[in-house]
Design a binder for these strands. Sequence first.
DNA 1: AATGAATGAGATTTCATTCAT
DNA 2: GATGAATGAAATCTCATTCAT
Lengths: 197, 197, 197, 197
Amino acid sequence: MMANLPKGDKREKILQAAAEVFGIAGFHEARIEEIAERAGIGKGTIYLYFKDKQELYLAMLQYQLASMVERLRLRLEASGTAVERLTGFLVEFFVLVRHYRGLPASQVRPPHACEERCRGLLLAARQTIHQMLTQVFRTAEEETIPEDLEPGFAATVLLGMAQGLAMDYLLGGNDFDPLSAAQKLVHLLCRKRDAGG
Amino acid sequence: MMANLPKGDKREKILQAAAEVFGIAGFHEARIEEIAERAGIGKGTIYLYFKDKQELYLAMLQYQLASMVERLRLRLEASGTAVERLTGFLVEFFVLVRHYRGLPASQVRPPHACEERCRGLLLAARQTIHQMLTQVFRTAEEETIPEDLEPGFAATVLLGMAQGLAMDYLLGGNDFDPLSAAQKLVHLLCRKRDAGG
Amino acid sequence: MMANLPKGDKREKILQAAAEVFGIAGFHEARIEEIAERAGIGKGTIYLYFKDKQELYLAMLQYQLASMVERLRLRLEASGTAVERLTGFLVEFFVLVRHYRGLPASQVRPPHACEERCRGLLLAARQTIHQMLTQVFRTAEEETIPEDLEPGFAATVLLGMAQGLAMDYLLGGNDFDPLSAAQKLVHLLCRKRDAGG
Amino acid sequence: MMANLPKGDKREKILQAAAEVFGIAGFHEARIEEIAERAGIGKGTIYLYFKDKQELYLAMLQYQLASMVERLRLRLEASGTAVERLTGFLVEFFVLVRHYRGLPASQVRPPHACEERCRGLLLAARQTIHQMLTQVFRTAEEETIPEDLEPGFAATVLLGMAQGLAMDYLLGGNDFDPLSAAQKLVHLLCRKRDAGG
DNA sequence: AATGAATGAGATTTCATTCAT
DNA sequence: GATGAATGAAATCTCATTCAT
């Protein structure tokens, strides 16, 4: 009785709860028991799915990064001009940062023992996003960006600026409007440096 | 005789050791005993100078931030054109980030119990730097930056991009050349956007 | 299976062990680990039942006082003359003091931080006993005590003398025979002061 | 310059300070540094006069007990009837207890490592007092106490009752008037039990 | 499979005591 | 002699992990 969830669902529930708790509290201040409670299961059950706290953390990180990359991909592959898609991308990026407030932060200082593996996951996600951005710049309408701005560097700068603003937000706690911030950044980078005059 | 350091020096020695250990290990993985060892003193001595681990952390943060702000100020108040000084500022910024590798990271996820106080210190440092940058943009030679780029926003963007690159570095571990990165960023922001053609 | 004790029993086991160790060593010299060992459990388990050392101490005190009051009540509510019941009470009192040798002592200098709460528990126990004694004196056969000895004061004096002897014992270590001491005290207080007859 | 006190005086100053601090805080909660501060000297100086905390405690105990015994002796050897002198003794006793509130308490639970030596000091003081009391009872005017009350037992009872009341006071914190308490106790013990006369 | 009571390693912090000045 | 900065042993308490049910 009590039709149990299929196994995959319980794992995901744990990962969701882990994302919340690790996000709020960071790796060390996060309590396994709190994660279990949020997932609506017993403490011991977590150890049926994950070897230890660290593996749970890594699995959660991978899971969240994949989900984020997917949401960002949707924005970049939407229809519209390059400027529109880049703006949509940035808005989504900022929304994600604000939503998973603690998650990016928790990545900055991963548990020492798995620093390398964390870095690997983050790097992979970043490269995927970077490639998607580069592709957008490469195929953008001619007039969108200055001719001397190489697509790869443009992607680096856009991502860098976005991360910079996000970091600002995370550190300083000064809130900001995702849409207007996105527009300003895109404007700064994409507008042809012109004006002829 | 009188070989002993004057009192202020021992406090600073502890703060230096604390910066190293907190930087490498983060607040929670840092062990008080390790800090004492690096400072070449006994565990208990730290408690003569700081009430507890958290106060030591905050004092260390304040101390390091003040030192960083001072080094950045020197670059911005040096002689030279605005472009030269901004480039110098960014180079110094990147060097600091690479040197104090862990310190900025440790700020991202401070111990929950003193999150507010950490934020306060960081915000203050950031505002000081932002003001210095704004002043540079405001007094820059006319042709340095686009007319429609407000000095305050220019400062925000420059700082944001710098932080973005630094975060990239911290997260991804992909090393980069401070000078060339600085030049690219300044070029991107400062060059008049005309090209004339 | 089901060999485990029901939950209440483990708590009591801890309280028993705590009474022994606190009794022997006093609050500050008592080590949590020693209590755990005596209770046959792990150190951490104690913290599942009691918030910290102080709360354990207070719980132990309450537990022991309740048990003592109960044993004294049985003696005062037994059948027999007032003199017999008072003697029984004193004998029990002295036996308790000798058995829980350290317990009363540990109450005299409770940890400063919970002095008030300790005092409250002790006062409550003492008042209960005082009331029971007063009741005995009030309903005693007319010829038992001098007419000018008010029941409440008689109770105070009896209890005071008993505590005085006990303190003597605790301080000086001079052993004594509970029964003979009890008889002497009761004799002193209860015999009608007439002689005249 | 700065004519130093003769050595004996500094030792006594420390003992006075120790009595205060041990009295207030008990052996374990008393801090050596606090004692030094009250004595107006440096922490290290205490160790020139006493081997360690325990020896200081024992010396303080001896010093205070001697002083108390002396004050009590003066009352018992004063002029006046036995009843007057006993009353004076009890008043002094209660005043001492209230003044050195913590001292007797601190004796009840001495540091485990010197329990025996503490007990020895206490026992000696008590015996001296007991002998003085016995002598008073022995030489008292015939009509003062019942014939069947042996002087030694009378002394034991008087001292016991006094200690009982004091304990009550120490434990319960219920204040009382020394004079009236003294009179009641003496009255209870000394009045000839005839009434008849 | 799921649980949560039990565990104990390990961290912070205090404070009696030492000793260089 | 006098000092107090420095020390480190020892105590409490937390929490990831285990395992009997």
